[in-house]
């Protein structure tokens, strides 16, 4: 079975894929998941002149089970034993990888930064045959901050 590789490294034939360090080899979705919403938070009260902290919280990380999900699972049941297993290739995997970020509707109240990030993920993955059409977010939208 061929495994879609979005990352370098790893032993040939190994079931464990390697990647995602230092932004090399990892996908943008990996970077977003790895760094956003992490790290020391410096609050303004420590007399530090904080110009701006863009708190980028991607609420879409929290997976909420929905009717949409249920119906999709049921649809998968329809496809069982019909589609040969090894046809599950890159588009499926990549499509899944965007899930973290492209559930853009769950992102609310964010600065333009997060919107651009999610936009870029959609952009970079959209041409790989993702079946989920998403609205292409505006880039560099002017917004008051």
């Amino acid at each position: 079975m061929t495994i879609a590789t979005t990352s370098g490294g790893g032993q040939p034939g190994s079931a464990l894929e390697r990647g995602g360090s230092g932004g090399s080899g990892g996908t943008l979705a990996d970077v977003v998941e790895t760094v956003l919403d992490k790290g020391v938070v410096i609050d303004a009260q420590v007399s530090v002149a904080v110009v701006g902290i863009q708190l980028l919280e991607i609420n879409a990380r929290i997976v909420i089970a929905s009717v949409e999900t249920y119906l999709r699972f049921a649809e998968t049941v329809d496809r069982l034993n019909i589609v040969p297993e090894d046809q599950k290739g890159l588009p499926d995997l990549v499509d899944g990888a965007t899930g973290a970020v492209t559930k853009g509707k769950a992102i609310s109240g964010l600065g333009k930064a997060a919107q651009e990030i999610s936009g870029a993920v959609v952009d970079s993955l959209g041409d790989r045959g993702s079946e989920r059409e998403r609205e292409r977010p505006r880039r560099r939208r002017d917004e008051e901050r």
Binding site: V35, G39, I42, V48, V50, L56
Partner: peptide
Amino acid sequence: LPVRFGTVVTGPDAVTDLLEA
């Protein structure tokens, strides 16, 4: 120790204040 992405301060003085505190 990563500092949360997006943290911008006014200048070097603010950084030393932070480290001191």
